[in-house]
């Protein structure tokens, strides 16, 4: 179908399909010299692929432009909120076993962030939530029909209980598992050095 140029080519020409597989790495500047020569040889004799490459280049440089890094608005500045979360972590570790520590187990930093997508008032909200919960627990609001306020940790009493159970589960996940398989454990997977 495609007309080959009459130029004499050295070695075996790669197919259209193979040539097209090289477009991406070529446009990303990642072709090694050997494959670069193979692609150029093919392109020299194939107008269809030259045209296809031109289109691919236009499409992906357009995409690259629209995915470029942009300046994020100041309201998303994380310096303060991260510092406050760290402060909270330190308080937590100092208060391990105390009432505050216990509450943090039910509402870990991760879930606090999920509860409240805005970052502007991290710590004040955290404390507001904790104070609110404390009051709630003390006045039996989370277990309205239970006579005993200590009921809230019993396995199968109400939906509030299962909610708290979920929270406890997510603590062990976030604090143990995800931390240990962060980065350190998998470094050796990469054999390309």
């Amino acid at each position: 179908m495609k007309k080959k140029s009459s130029n004499i080519t050295k070695g075996k020409q790669i197919s259209h399909k193979k040539a097209k597989m090289l477009f991406g790495p070529h446009l990303d500047g990642e072709l090694d010299p050997k494959r670069k020569i193979a692609l150029n040889d093919h392109l020299a004799g194939c107008e269809a692929c030259r045209e296809a490459l031109k289109q691919e280049k236009a499409l992906f440089s357009g995409l690259a432009n629209s995915l470029e890094t942009v300046e994020i608005p100041e309201k998303y500045n994380l310096v303060d909120s991260v510092a406050k979360e760290i402060e909270f972590l330190e308080i937590k570790s100092r208060n391990e076993g105390s009432v505050l520590g216990l509450l943090e187990n039910f509402f870990p930093s991760k879930d606090r962030a999920k509860l409240r997508p805005s970052f502007s008032a991290s710590l004040s909200y955290s404390f507001a939530i904790i104070v609110g919960i404390s009051i709630g627990l003390l006045s039996g609001m989370l277990t309205p029909d239970a006579s005993n306020t200590a009921n809230y940790i019993e396995p199968d009493s109400s939906t509030a209980t299962s909610y708290l159970d979920n929270m406890i589960e997510s603590v062990s996940y976030s604090d143990e598992e995800s931390l240990t398989n962060l980065y350190f454990g998998t470094e050796t997977e990469n054999t390309n050095e």
Binding site: I72, Y76, L78, S81, V82, E85, I86, L89, S109, K110, A113, K114, P117, F119, S178, L179, L182
Partner: peptide, 10 residues
């Protein structure tokens, strides 16, 4: 922003 904060904390 939420996920980025999580990365920094980790």
């Amino acid at each position: 922003a939420e996920l980025s904060q999580e990365v920094f904390l980790r």
